[in-house]
Simulated assay, not measured.
Amino acid sequence: MGVWQLVLVGLVMVLGVVGVLVPGVPGRWLVWAAMLWWSLHELSTTAWVLLVAATVLFLVDQVVVWLLPVRRAREAGCTGRVAVFAGLGAVTGFVLLPVVGAIPGFVAGIYAVERLRLGGHGQAVASTRAVMRGAGTSLLVELFACLLVVGAWLGAVLAG
Rank of each mutant, 00 (worst) to 15 (best):
P26T: 06
G120K: 14
W38V: 05
G10K: 02
W48G: 04
P104Y: 04
A112R: 00
V9R: 09
A112C: 06
L57P: 02
L57H: 05
W66T: 10
W48C: 00
G122D: 15
L96Q: 07
Q62M: 12
G77D: 01
R71N: 12
T46L: 05
S44D: 09
G105P: 01
V65K: 01
L21W: 11
M13K: 05
V20N: 04
Y111Q: 11
F94K: 06
D61M: 12
V65N: 01
A108G: 04
L15G: 14
W38Y: 15
A83C: 12
V20R: 00
Y111M: 09
R115Q: 05
V12F: 08
L68H: 00
V64L: 15
L118N: 01
E114N: 11
V107E: 07
W66F: 14
A124Y: 04
A112N: 00
R28F: 01
R81Q: 14
A73L: 06
R74P: 01
L118F: 02
A34V: 02
G19Q: 02
P98N: 09
V64M: 09
G122L: 10
G93H: 08
A126T: 04
W29L: 14
V31G: 08
A86E: 11
G109C: 06
V91S: 13
R81P: 05
T45Y: 08
G109P: 03
A34H: 01
R117P: 00
